[in-house]
């Protein structure tokens, strides 16, 4: 969004401006305060937690919550697992989306339209509906507690294909046609013309999928039972189940921070792309 305010327009403190600022301030506080409180709580010990008084800042800072969380659940390993699943899963999804979208836009096939609708319609099928049969199938192949069992069933991509198809259709046809006349085959045209010209859209698809893979919960919950193979959100469940006493909320919050913070950091740097990605398709994943 370009904020090209005319230089002559000065900010006047009208009642309307004050009202809108109050709305925005309230909205920002409603988002920031709980997240800030969570981060502070992750440094609290039993004394600051098991109390009915409102304790905002810890009286005794207890960074050991993080090492304690890592003892109860192997968070270092979980971080690695989440990173692997996110990078490989999102990477392959983007690759599949690029190939499918290229075929749909630049190749000829009599039933192309139906292939497109078949791919698009998958966006209507939530993973929850396919979870049970996929679990039966993947576990029968021995995919429980493996990386491939974790990644494979989620790779099919309707969202990415849809978004990249839109982007590819808007590319200047003459450039691709010129490459064609220069004797470049489909493969060369894809990687030397189409992909370089569509990098913003590809980045958007990649970011949306990174967020989706990082947060994914239901499938890891079903297919992973071995703590060493868990992703971060899946590991939180394990931590939640092992931490029932109110005084150990600090350890649980430390684990939660480890799940939420990486995405918040990525968002801080790339928020415009991420917002665009999530609001363009209207669908997650």
């Amino acid at each position: 969004m370009s904020t090209t305010t005319a230089p002559s327009r000065k900010l006047r403190l009208t009642p309307l401006t004050v009202r809108d600022y109050l709305v925005l301030l309230l909205a920002v506080l409603v988002v920031v305060l709980p997240l800030g409180y969570m981060i502070l709580a992750s440094f609290k010990g039993a004394g600051d937690l098991a109390t009915t008084d409102l304790v905002v800042f810890p009286e005794v800072w207890k960074p050991e919550n993080y090492s304690e969380a890592a003892v109860k659940v192997p968070f270092g390993r979980l971080f690695l697992n989440s990173t692997i699943v996110t990078v490989v899963g999102a990477g392959l999804k983007v690759l599949l989306a690029i190939l499918t979208a290229y075929g749909l836009v630049f190749c000829e096939f009599p039933g192309k339209k139906y292939v497109f609708w078949g791919v698009l319609a998958t966006m209507m099928v939530p993973p929850q509906v396919t979870a049970l049969p996929n679990y039966v199938f993947i576990s029968s192949l021995g995919g429980e507690n493996t990386y491939w069992g974790l990644i494979l069933p989620g790779l099919a991509t309707g969202f990415g294909t849809f978004l990249l198809r839109q982007a590819f259709m808007q590319l200047p046809y003459e450039v691709i046609e010129a490459a064609h006349l220069d004797g470049a085959g489909h493969w060369r045209r894809l990687w030397h013309c189409v992909v370089p010209m569509s990098l913003p859209s590809i980045a958007t698809v990649a970011l949306v999928n990174v967020v989706y893979e990082w947060n994914d919960y239901l499938w890891p919950l079903i297919i992973i039972t071995d703590p060493a193979m868990m992703t971060l959100p899946r590991g939180l469940t394990l931590l939640q189940n092992s931490e029932s006493a109110a005084s150990s909320f600090g350890v649980l919050m430390a684990g939660t921070v480890m799940v939420l913070l990486p995405i918040l950091v990525v968002f801080a740097f790339l928020q415009r792309h991420i917002v665009n990605g999530f609001t363009q398709g209207g669908v997650k994943g």
Binding site: L35, Y37, N215, Y217, P233, L260, I263, Q271
Partner: peptide, 15 residues
């Protein structure tokens, strides 16, 4: 205001 939308639902629930 948009940020919570992209956070893990599980993590947000616990917080």
């Amino acid at each position: 205001v948009f940020a919570p939308y992209i956070l893990s639902g599980y993590g947000v629930g616990l917080a």
